[in-house]
Structures are given as C-alpha cells and as structure tokens.
C-alpha cells in the first residue's frame, strides 16, 4: 500500500527533523538542571540558525558556519544568564520577550543582509557497514554529521550531569541553591556556566535546521521547535537518553504530513491536521507528565546573603 521509497523518505525526514529538537533538548536539560527555565530557547535557536546561514553565505565554509552558530548560542547564554541569574528577572516573561526580540531581529537582519541567498550545507555521510544494509542503509545515507554528533553528545551530557562532580554541583544549584552556597560554592557562577553552555547547545539545533536544508534562512524558521524541546525535556524527566527518544518521536510526528500525503486513504484529511500533530503531541506530553518533578529550584532566582533558603 505504501511503497518502500515513501517509507524511506518518511524516515529520512523524521531523522532530519529529530536533530534540531535533540540539540535543543540537551541544552535545555543542562539549563533546567541548574535551576533556570529558559523559555527563550526558541529565540536562541532562531539566532543560532540565522548566524549559521549568515556566516555560511559570507564565508562559504560549513565549518565556520557551524562554529558561528554555536558561538552565537554562547553569546545568547551570556545575555540571558545576566538577566535570569544576575539580575533575577522573571524567567518566563524574560524568555518570551527574548523570543519576540529574536524573531524581529533575525527577520530584519535577513532582509538587510542575506535575503533569499543560500549557503553551504552538510552532505550525507556514509557509515561503514550500515550503508549496505537494505532500507536502514538507504535511510542513513541521507544523514549528515550532525545526527551522529547529536547521538554522541547524548551520553556525554548524561555523564557530565550524573557522573561528575561538576554535574553534582549543577544539579545542587537546581535543587537547593542554598545548600550549594552553604557548601562553599558560588551558585551564580555554577548557573552561568550551565546556562551559557546549554544555550550554545540549543543554538546548534538552529544550526542543524539550516545546514540540513538549503543553507539559507527563512523568517521564523524554527517554528516552535524550541517550545517542543521544552516539552521533550519534561517528558524525558531531565534525562538525556530519554530526550533522544522523545526527539525521535517528535521527528516522526512532524513528518507524518508527508507520509499522510502519500496514502490515498488519508487524502481527505486536511493537511493542517498533520501539521498540527507535533504541537498537539507536545500538549499531550505535558499534560500526561504532570507527575514528573521539576528540579526544585527551577525558575527561582537565587539571592545570596539569606542563609538557608530552599
């Protein structure tokens, strides 16, 4: 009923769509584990995507474009952590404002600087051994290095958070910053590091969007994937391994529209319904993960000097 080619394309698209959400989720896990909720993740991805496209077009180098995307995320992290951590603003409102700013800023700069130009993109790389396997090989042949980088990064983030002393400190900052301070550490510094690094990773989600498609930038091209990542993080209970699965599920949900368009029986269903699928799925995920426990201090700015707050 469905041809093999359609199925291959479906999985190829799914994997491609999974990568941005994976990077965004890994970054957000770091940020939230330290006690900060970065609602501005959408804007960080958008700025990452734009910077990647701009540098790619100007330099012609994929490597520089990728580095620039990551670097722009780190800079967003510096700005956001100054607001979230140092000044202690309301994180939800600040994040939303940052998103609005990012949409406006990237759209304006696109019109001024790059318009509809396209830059270099990452080509698919063949994996020795797997490329000969029927079906799987065909799907993977289309995937670029960012998929493998994301998959490799997942256990790295997990080990950093759960198996190192640095990770213990980050998690203490997210659970009970007062205890971290009483242990002789600087809560702010711990959170700066986590927010900056996390924003860098999240921006790579935007980079992946650009380098896996045309190499150009389209206004608002992140299209809510940052918010989907916020949902994936809750669903994954702040575990990078589960976030990988979650990102895969959302990749599949996003490419449903393509699969549906190829199946005659579903021809009557409006396309918009399929487009909405990932967002509806996000809402369901958040509703059904009510019992998952946020790190206790998420969203609460820390003020030193008061002895033992929670």
């Amino acid at each position: 009923m469905v041809s093999e080619l359609v199925l291959i394309t479906f999985f190829v698209t799914s994997l491609q769509l999974m990568v941005p959400i994976l990077f965004a989720s890994l970054g957000e896990i770091l940020v939230e584990r330290s006690g900060v909720l970065n609602v501005g993740i959408e804007g960080v991805m958008l700025i990452g995507a734009f910077t990647t496209a701009l540098v790619g077009i100007e330099s012609g180098s994929v490597g520089l474009a990728l580095l620039a995307g990551f670097g722009s995320g780190l800079l967003c992290g510096v700005a956001l952590s100054a607001l979230y951590v140092r000044i202690g603003t309301d994180q939800v409102v600040t994040g939303l404002m940052f998103n609005i700013l990012a949409i406006g800023l990237t759209s304006l700069l696109r019109d001024q600087l790059i318009g509809g130009q396209v830059g270099p993109i990452l080509r698919g790389i063949s994996v020795p051994g797997l490329s000969r396997v029927r079906f799987v090989g065909d799907v993977l042949a289309q995937q670029n290095a960012l998929l493998w980088a994301g998959i490799a990064l997942t256990p790295v983030v997990a080990v950093a958070l759960y198996r190192t002393w640095w990770g213990l400190q980050v998690r203490a900052a997210g659970e009970r910053p007062g205890a971290l301070a009483a242990s002789g550490y600087d809560v702010w510094r711990t959170r700066y590091a986590a927010v900056i690094l996390g924003c860098g990773l999240s921006a790579l989600g935007g980079t992946a969007l650009v380098l896996s498609s045309s190499g150009g930038f389209v206004p608002n091209m992140v299209a809510g994937r940052g918010f989907i990542a916020l949902g994936v993080v809750v669903l994954a209970r702040w575990r990078p391994g589960i976030a990988l699965l979650g990102a895969a599920v959302f990749g599949l949900a996003q490419s449903l529209q393509f699969l549906a368009s190829q199946i005659d029986a579903l021809a009557g269903v409006p396309r918009e319904l399929w487009l909405a699928a990932p967002y509806v799925a996000t809402i369901f995920v958040v509703v059904f993960s009510l019992q998952s426990r946020y790190p206790a201090a998420v969203g609460v700015p820390y003020k030193p000097g008061t002895a033992s707050q929670h």
Partner: peptide
C-alpha cells in the same frame, strides 16, 4: 533549616562541599 539537597544521597551531600568541579568523575 538544613542546607542539604533533598534529592541527593547522604554521600553526595556530605561530599558536595569537599570536591571541586575539576575533580572529574564521581
């Protein structure tokens, strides 16, 4: 009001202050 991290084990809490972030693997 104890300055402990409720979600951590006793050992993690006791040693939280004793190791720098550079101490590497836990």
């Amino acid at each position: 009001h104890f300055a402990l991290v409720p979600a951590f084990t006793v050992a993690e809490n006791v040693l939280l202050g004793s190791r720098s972030a550079r101490a590497g693997m836990l």
